[in-house]
Amino acid sequence: MTTAATTAPERRRRRLSGSNFALGAIGLFSIGALLEILPRIGVMDRRFFPPSSEILTMLLRQLGEPGFWTAVGQTMRGWAIGLTIAMVAGVLAGVVIGSIPVLREFTASTIEFLRPIPSVALIPLVVLLYGTKIQSALILIVYAAFWQILVQVLYGVADVDPVVRDTARSYRFSRWTQFKQVVWPTALPYVVTGFRLAAAVALILEVTAELVIGVPGLGRNLGIAQSSGAVTLTYALVVAIGIIGIIINLFARYIERRVLRWHPSVRRDVAA
């Protein structure tokens, strides 16, 4: 290949990625400015859509209130506990089912049936069982996140190279060594992908439980703000929840990079 033809686009790409950040900032700022001006000049109804500066001011004021931080803590706690339970259960079940062919064959149809059941269908049941206690949120989170992780782990365990597996067996590795040296390293990228998907799903269900059932947290505050007509606060809380979503996303990607730093392959998400 001629070098001129390949280096020129590369240069262009590098220059762009440098300015991408600036462009993105300009984009965010412009949208913010638009959401400031439109309500002020009356194109958007101020009663339903306050100018962005008012939302931002409200958010900053919230940051100084202990009650806000309590709610953030409650939301994060539910998310973290639910996600942890789902992770442990999903990985354990995935490894066990994945490593035993008979088990995999027998459970496949059941998993395929249970997985797409929307966990929000369980809302009335958990309300009866636990009311507004944190358990209500946890059940919804664990149900939704568990399948994401389980399916990824199953893909991962199935991805083990048969030649490598046979080699390990022919050297009479113990079951534990086989798992540690062969199965786990292969499955790890999938486990991490499952973690990233589950982290996002867990936040969705935590907020849903707060909003719909009234489990304490930012979502409940949001619902109260909305129903009491505190429009600016409603938007400020939506922005706050969005920021938490971004932080969780960045956190999951950071974990992914950390865990897979040594891993030779960069894997794409398995269609789940």
Partner: peptide
């Protein structure tokens, strides 16, 4: 990144 369920009360406004 905004969990979609929070859109429901906003739309309800």
């Amino acid at each position: 990144a905004i969990p979609p369920p929070v859109l429901v009360p906003i739309i309800a406004l």
